[in-house]
Nucleic acid binder design. Structure first.
Lengths: 227, 227
DNA sequence: CCAAAAGTGTTCGGCTTACACCCATGA
DNA sequence: TCATGGGTGTAAGCCGAACACTTTTGG
């Protein structure tokens, strides 16, 4: 009997901002099944298209977004996950600076929006499960690789980084120890500029030095950021 | 246009023994393409079958093996990876005690054998790449989770564990520090029995205490085994 | 001058590392 | 008695954790 399995990709794209914390990008489905329900952006892989291409295409089509970090997460293949037919989903994990984009729903998406990861709506298919896996990965990831910078502005005050870690790891961090540790990694560049928030003393801006990071990584340097 | 993508699974199953070190299970392909070439066990997922089921079935059919540890590794989906058509492969990573099984080639496999990971033959498809990814994962994995025990006999002398780590991580380990660390984790049980190797003083046998391990893991205990 | 956030050092304890000699067995 | 592998303790240094007061700005 001929194999009749559909191959699709789905993306869990995270964004972060100071006020609302960590969010996931969702689309509202235009079509059945799960019509009008929120779901992860994604869709069928085209013949001759690589998986990465498919994810990037779907994100552009359905949400108007180009991620700046993307990695494969997990492949879900239980035959019951799609009510229509056996369909596997290769899920991806992405990071983006929400401020960089104007969301725009197209094709299969009737709407697009950011949802705080603590206030998710009911989701289509097994997408809740996929998001849970992605959150777990994100939490793990930031403790051993400096991916957090992909979520912050290019130039950011140190407290933003601190708050990001606190939000993601969900526990208090000692400001002094945190700074010592991160500065000790030698992958940040301190700028002369400062930024003024609503109140309080202005903060020095920092920049992630990607080149330095890759140099150190080459040399087998380790970037554990445990707490 | 209708989607025409084949879905298959492939397994990188590792075995270990004292003399030959770490090996991978390979089969010799009975059919085209890559006929008579060595390849990973695996094959098409059947309609209505989950991915895990598919891997276990293929391993039983092609090699006569039941793994005792299995996890998903990565999904390879470049359209050029199969000369016939667009085919994605969900690859798995497995561990087994080679002594527990009598290899037996069937169906698509003309032969099955263990190959030392440092002496691999030329491989079909992109299977070399898949094995490389699996080795990297294995190396990483044993540093933060006690999966090594799945490769050793149920009861083993401490030096076996030490040699396994040395082989996998490819560097010297101080016997005393290693023992202190592992014993300190509290997941080993020391038995009264000893084993006599070809020469030298007989060695005390140890057993991995899975129950204790899960208990500790529940409590958020961490099992880093860095060097 | 008050509120809000940024900035900054030191001490203590525990973990990691380095390191070398004796023991039990078979040949 | 020799060769082979098994077994064991201690000291030094480094890293992570705990901890509080001062500075700069806007209102």
């Amino acid at each position: 009997m001929k194999q009749e399995i559909k191959v699709s990709v789905d993306a869990v794209v995270f964004g972060y901002d100071q006020e609302s914390g960590v969010s996931v990008l969702l689309i509202k489905r235009r079509n059945e099944p799960f019509q009008k329900m929120w779901a992860l952006p994604g869709g069928l892989v085209l013949n001759g298209e690589s998986l990465d291409e498919a994810v990037n295409r779907e994100l552009r089509e359905e949400a108007g977004i180009d991620v700046n970090y993307l990695e494969q997460l997990y492949t879900f293949g239980s035959p019951e996950r799609d009510p229509r037919n056996h369909a596997i989903s290769i899920s991806y994990f992405g990071l983006v600076r929400p401020q960089d984009f104007q969301l725009a729903a197209h094709t299969d998406a009737e709407d697009v929006a950011w949802f705080n990861i603590k206030k998710l709506p009911k989701l289509a298919f097994d997408h809740k499960k996929i998001i849970d896996a992605a959150i777990k990965r994100l939490r793990g990831k930031i403790t051993y690789e400096p991916v957090g910078f992909e979520l912050l502005d290019k130039e950011f005050p140190f407290s933003d980084l601190e708050k990001l870690y606190q939000t993601l790891l969900d526990h208090e961090i000692d400001r002094r120890n945190f700074k010592k540790k991160i500065i000790g990694l030698g992958i940040l560049e301190e700028l002369d500029e400062t930024i003024q928030r609503k109140s309080g003393r202005p903060a020095r801006l920092f920049k992630f030095n990607k080149k330095k990071y890759f140099e150190l990584k080459e040399k087998g340097y380790n970037f554990d950021i445990f707490f």
